[in-house]
């Protein structure tokens, strides 16, 4: 808790210099200079004052207008667990917290089911416990592609199931693209909500 140099030249001191300068000028060019003895005396007094105020010091920090610098402020060190709780609350998560099972999830988030691991194909959740099904827009939103990522197991069987499901639901042929190495399926068109609904029903 150390402070830097505080230049405490007051506003008033600066004002005095200004007023004095103006006063000297006005005395010099006014009739008071000739006719009044007091004018000359006043002028001498003001000049003396200005010499004091504008005299040169070896450095600004050594001038009488600067306060002495405080290098160390007085403080106390406390260790209070009740206060430290507020600090701990602000610290970032070291890992993403595990979801504690609850009775209901009002937001519509659905926890994955263990039984889904036994299926011939599987989609694991992302690190944020979301299902990796996304809508990819390109050509200024003209081309819509639904992408299912991170697919494990029999990707071709999953492709057949998806195609069959969408054909029966929408009564039209749906184009898909399977990338076996990168483990994703792309469907031409926006079927994100259908696919999410299907994935949750499977327990992914």
């Amino acid at each position: 808790m150390s402070a830097g140099v505080r230049h405490n030249v007051s506003f008033e001191t600066n004002n005095i210099v200004l007023i004095a300068l103006v006063a000297i000028r006005s005395i010099r060019y006014s009739k008071w200079r000739r006719c009044c003895v007091h004018g000359a005396r006043l002028r001498g007094f003001l000049l003396e004052k200005i010499n004091f105020l504008t005299s040169q010091y070896s450095s600004f920090a050594k001038s009488p207008f600067v306060d002495k610098i405080t290098e160390q402020y007085n403080y106390e060190i406390t260790k209070n667990p009740t206060e430290w709780k507020f600090v701990e609350r602000l610290m970032p998560f070291k890992t993403i917290p595990q979801v504690v099972p609850k009775e209901s999830y009002p937001s519509g988030w659905i926890p994955p089911k263990e039984e889904a691991r036994k299926l011939p194909y599987f989609i694991p959740r992302t690190k944020n416990y979301a299902i990796p099904i996304y809508l990819q827009l390109s050509f200024k939103g003209n081309r819509k592609i639904t992408q299912l990522k991170k697919i494990e197991g029999d990707i071709w069987l999953m492709n057949d199931d998806i195609k069959h499901l969408l054909k029966t639901k929408h009564k039209r042929y749906v184009e898909t693209r399977v990338h076996e190495v990168a483990r994703f399926i792309e469907i031409k068109g926006d079927y994100v909500n259908d696919m999410k609904e299907w994935a949750f029903s499977k327990g992914f």
Partner: peptide, 22 residues
Amino acid sequence: FYGLEPGWVINLKDECILKPKD
């Protein structure tokens, strides 16, 4: 911050809070 007053210095290493008395 909740529970932390302006002027306090938080020492995360020693887990203590420095409070000004000046």
